[in-house]
Design a protein around this nucleic acid. Sequence first.
RNA 1: GUAGUUGUAGCUCAGUUGGUUAGAGCAUCAGAUUGUGAUUCUGAGGGUCGUGGGUUCGAGCCCCAUCAAUUACCCCA
Length: 453
Amino acid sequence: MSKPSLPQGMRDFSATTVRKRNFIFSTIKNVFECFGFEPLETPAMENLDTLMGKYGEEGDRLIFKVLNNGLNDPKNTDKAKEGFEKVLQGKSSSLLTERALKYDLTIPFARFVAINHGQLTFPYKRYQVQPVWRADRPQKGRYREFTQCDADVVGSTSLRNEVELAGIYHSVFTKLGLKDYTLKINSRKILSALAEICGGNQFLTDITIAIDKLDKIGIEKVKAELVQRGLNDSQVSIIEKYLGISGSNQEKLNKIVSLLENNENVNSGANELSYILSECLSYNIEIDFTLARGLNYYTGTIFEVKAPDTVQMGSIGGGGRYDNLTELFGVPNIPGVGISFGVDRIYDVMEELNLFPENLQIGTKALFFNMGENESQFAYKLMQPLREHGISCELFHETSKMDKQFKYADKKNISFVIIIGSKEIEEKNAVVKNLKTGAQENVGFGELVDYLK
RNA sequence: GUAGUUGUAGCUCAGUUGGUUAGAGCAUCAGAUUGUGAUUCUGAGGGUCGUGGGUUCGAGCCCCAUCAAUUACCCCA
């Protein structure tokens, strides 16, 4: 048997990492709860047809599909072969695979709402912190299994929701110490208006894909791509002006309205952004008309969070308003808006900027040295009251040299070691050494709890 | 799916135009110290040089294939 390995893009997390990740999780969850959101968990797998067609063509390809069981049963042979033929043609077939790992948290949430809308109290505010899977090529900041933290509100069209979700971003990133983040905002309505003026709605996707690349490939290549996608010169020149819009948020709004004048969508989108911005003055929000976001179910405001400029990382969060997500599952008229945190990328950014507090890595508070069998039995009894008081402590279970026991304590970042040998048992005193300061004191057995508290 | 880079000890890496028995630091283990370590000293273990072919008197080094990791494109958190 050769060395075992992990599937591509999947990771183990050891203690240090888990503690840091939990710090992020608990910060986010606390803020969600604080804003009145309630938790939801959905299964790792969904029916494949729940997910297919919801993320665009590229998204469909990245869904991890699960092979059906029992394909080797002789009575299923013909069906399995038929299904395999379809798969070879690039289609998916329920004869071969009818389940898939979830790709994000939003679609399973919509599916949940579609099933349970009769029981839910609207507006329904839920948060969800779970892993999702994508069969993407892994690279920096990109994994095949990663955790999303979503908060969504459904059953409310009020822009107060957008304001509050922006507030959640602000609150979480402030608490994490990531204050230099930028929240970018745009509206799908403005992008629609642009498309209507530049060749019609069927170009919406082409235009958004192209302009989204502006800061990566530059204006000339964007223009070339637009031409290649079928736009004419005057349309391209409007888009060039659109992309050239700069200034303060208010100036940008004024310019976009005058550029795309007399369009219902642009007025509506600009008014919405204007309202949100006026309510979020302290949140460091920046209008970015090139912001598009891939998922095609967004219809209104869209958000994206950019990491501080000092680190190279794509977006660490995003979201937006969708008017009709549950309609995909036969339940119309439930509008919603949501945001997501990319924990794995936030982790990478915080690690790079050294933002994790040091006290995260304290597990065991006190280590009792093993000074022999009798002494161990005595120490074991002394430990119990400490544990009942919530003081985490452990006894070294091997009779090793003190040198080794010290090293163990050091590696586990344990604050105190407690030495109880025959002399200490006789004198009813424990030797307590503080490893941070090097100081050591005799502490009566009865005073240990208070001393270590 | 496309392209670049990298695979040598548990970890981080040296390794000369191809030339004796492949090295270092850290880590591990054992001993100077049978009750005070992390910043003393000594020693030990540990490698089919990713895998499989080829060229050569001779390959860690050159060639081909393959696998894996990683980065970029596409797309995305």
